[in-house]
Design a protein around this nucleic acid. Sequence first.
DNA 1: TTCGATTTGTTCGTATGTATG
DNA 2: CCATACATACGAACAAATCGA
Lengths: 139, 139
Amino acid sequence: MRRRRRIDHSLERPAYKQLADIIRDQVAKGELEPGDRLPSEHDLMQGYDLSRTTVRQAFAHLRAEGAIVTGPRGSYVRGEDNRQEVTPSGAVVTARMPSEEERRRLAIGQGVPVLVVTTAKGDEVLPSDRWAIRIEAGE
Amino acid sequence: MRRRRRIDHSLERPAYKQLADIIRDQVAKGELEPGDRLPSEHDLMQGYDLSRTTVRQAFAHLRAEGAIVTGPRGSYVRGEDNRQEVTPSGAVVTARMPSEEERRRLAIGQGVPVLVVTTAKGDEVLPSDRWAIRIEAGE
DNA sequence: TTCGATTTGTTCGTATGTATG
DNA sequence: CCATACATACGAACAAATCGA
């Protein structure tokens, strides 16, 4: 893994955002693909001459936006979503982030919002990486 | 601001999650209402005998799940959402977190997912705190 | 307006724990 | 047992923004 860009501490943009930008760009360019492992926090510290705090802060933001997932053995580019479809009728749909408790109970990944489908029968909460709402073409 | 609960460092649950739990509960119980200001990081450090790092970690998680918003003058319980409705036809709807760039461009708040409405004309990206999808009752 | 206090933002360092290979 | 890698948590310092006197 070679370092293409450096962190410019003279810029207004903080170092952790610059690192997050670099990783987002590598994903956008296909240099990193879904499922690929990122360099370890230690390697990024060394490679970009940053503290572990700064690297972890970049990762935290990327996790919060669902770009990467982090586990005990490293961080990975989020895999492709694989969604089932539901076709509700007479409903209002919106989205929000799940609470910690919901994430545990529904096994929702890092940075994954939920779709909330409200009908007369109540609310249904669907993880957005596994569900999509199909709306039939009208008349 | 009176401290109701203490952090128990002997528990499995890490201190920052315990603090986040306390704040979530205060919101759930109505002790903190939407728009209310949270104690400053410094006050929480003192009140619960935690480092600033730990308090900030709790806040970061609460921000990521959209429970609070933080600005230069403090953190606040997220205000009530005020949504307009759209009624697409022949569409697939899902949700995801916006990138940093999208958050800037569309003025999306912290911890707010976007609804993605895909039709023949392309994708439409709607902040979920301002938009909901209404689906008419079918026959 | 100027100044000082408050509050969050950013970044470094260090240490220990847990899990895996 | 050792090395790797992430999780948690302490401390410290300075910058930037805001607000009220």
